[in-house]
């Protein structure tokens, strides 16, 4: 028996909207730790790792570990039927091949339930060890989204270079080149606008713009984004959800042959 109650359906809606274009089907894993998902895109270039911590839910009952295969597009469709301020309850009985989403309006005068078919998915879980990264940048999530979108219109790849002064995003395309430097800056009006650099060594890596743009669909989840890089390692783009957990995207770099 699984029963998870979350007061803000809006959060779950944003989570689904941010991953449904990257991953078609995925297993949601439910354990005492929380409601989590790890899935790669079909080309195995990008990976999404989501954790919604159990203590972030208003009610969290998960009798034993359970994995539920869902089509994320269909799940997003059902969640779109909830209002952002509805309470959502996710329910599944042991051995059932369906999951139920129940939405309750804040005044309790409208209660809806949507039952969705589960699917069997061969999940390929990657073991991702906790790593020390050579460079970590924290910056405005909306600024990062803007940069990825702007550079994506000019070139297919983005070079991200971190020095202790700041982070540089560069691209090159048929029509020309572009460079954006965000200098470290903590003297800001709103703390989410700060750009903070923690760096052991300068790092410069190349990534496909379209994946970075896809990751920025998670921008509504957090004011700041954390970008972690080490030489010849996948980049990690993380959106932390206050009290609830995180959405992390991993992207393998492009290398010179």
């Amino acid at each position: 028996m699984l029963e998870l109650r979350l007061t803000q359906a809006g959060l779950l809606k944003k989570v689904l909207e941010s991953i449904k274009d990257l991953v078609t089907d995925a297993n949601f894993d439910c354990s005492a730790t929380g409601f989590s998902l790890q899935a790669m895109d079909s080309s195995h270039v990008a990976l999404v790792a989501l954790l919604l911590r159990s203590d972030g839910f208003e009610h969290y009952r998960c009798d034993h570990n359970i994995s539920m295969g869902m089509n994320l597009g269909n799940m997003a469709k059902m969640l779109r039927c909830a209002s952002d301020d509805d309470t959502v309850t996710i329910k599944a009985d042991d051995g059932s091949d369906t999951v139920t989403f129940m939405f309750e309006s804040p005044s309790q005068d409208k209660i809806s339930d949507y039952e969705m078919k589960l699917m069997d998915i061969d999940s390929e879980h990657l073991g991702i060890p906790e790593a020390e990264y050579q460079a970590i940048v924290r910056m405005s999530a909306s600024e990062f989204a803007r940069i990825c979108k702007d550079l994506g219109t000019i070139g297919d790849t983005v070079i991200i270079s971190v020095t202790k002064e700041g982070v540089q995003f560069s691209t090159k395309g048929d029509i020309g080149t572009a460079n954006i430097i965000c200098r470290k800056n903590t003297a800001v009006d709103k703390k989410e606008e700060a750009t903070v650099i923690e760096m052991a060594e300068p790092v410069s890596l190349t990534f496909a713009s379209r994946y970075l743009i896809a990751f920025t669909k998670a921008t509504p989840l957090a004011g700041q984004v954390t970008i972690s890089m080490s030489y010849d390692m996948p980049i990690v783009v993380e959106y932390k959800m206050e009290t609830m957990g995180y959405m992390r995207f991993y992207l393998a770099p492009k290398i010179e042959e």
């Binding site: 270039v45 990008a46 990657l126 393998a252």
Partner: peptide, 14 residues
């Protein structure tokens, strides 16, 4: 020319 690496180049399947 740059080659796109896959995640399996870095991580192993559990």
């Amino acid at each position: 020319l740059k080659t796109q690496l896959r995640l399996e180049a870095f991580y192993t399947f559990n």
